[in-house]
């Protein structure tokens, strides 16, 4: 474990907490894409299949349980909670997950570290996470008003992956034969997809104006 990875995991945890706070306290999921939340639940399910078979550390297991529990809770809130679901904008959140899942699955079957079920599912989860934010970014373009909590949630979600890249550089430098091209490339694509959001988020912070994405 290194400081980059710990900060990254805490940033990721913070993003989930910000979102759960928004949904649980103000009982609203306005501006949040259910599609992205569902994709993240799938990402964690496919990535943590080894939660009962491979024990890495208590930290690792506890964090996996937290990410699984929170991602499914958020999906449950947005789908079934009688108040929260009313603020879900299903007419705007129309991105078809299947267009993201199928290519990622095919790619995972073609490019993986070992052709076993768990490994292909693990690889699929990295490819899928790289693009899982797309429905959310599309929704942001469509809904003009982005409230602060939503903006902070997306910023933290993007920042955690950028921090993971620092962790991978650190581990590549300090650990002999630590090479994992699949997470590296996926993580890079994922972070780049946040590029323009980070830019507008920074502008809104610098000029102290409401976050607006160009149409």
């Amino acid at each position: 474990m290194n400081i980059f990875r710990l900060t990254a995991d805490m940033t990721h945890l913070m993003s989930v907490i910000v979102l759960l706070l928004k949904i649980h306290t103000i009982k609203s999921c306005a501006g949040i894409s259910l599609k992205t939340q569902e994709l993240y639940a799938i990402v964690f399910t496919c990535r943590y299949l080894d939660i009962f078979t491979d024990f890495i550390s208590f930290y690792n297991t506890i964090m996996k349980v937290i990410f699984l529990w929170t991602s499914f809770s958020i999906v449950w809130y947005m789908r079934y909670h009688k108040i929260v679901r009313r603020s879900y904008d299903k007419d705007q959140d129309t991105f078809r997950h299947v267009f993201l899942m199928l290519p990622c699955l095919v790619l995972a079957l073609l490019i993986n570290e070992r052709f076993t079920f768990k490994e292909v599912m693990w690889t699929f989860s990295f490819y899928l996470e790289a693009v899982a934010i797309l429905p959310q970014l599309v929704l942001l373009q469509r809904t003009r008003n982005i409230d602060n909590l939503t903006g902070q949630y997306i910023f933290l979600l993007g920042a955690y992956r950028a921090l993971y890249i620092l962790n991978w550089i650190y581990r590549y430098v300090t650990e002999p034969n630590y090479v994992h091209w699949i997470p590296w490339m996926s993580g890079l694509v994922q972070t780049l997809l946040y590029g323009d959001f980070f830019y507008y988020y920074f502008l809104s912070w610098k000029n102290n104006v409401k976050l607006q994405l160009p149409a």
Partner: peptide
Amino acid sequence: KENTSKHDEL
């Protein structure tokens, strides 16, 4: 020696 086949990151 941590067996590298195990994925130790979240």
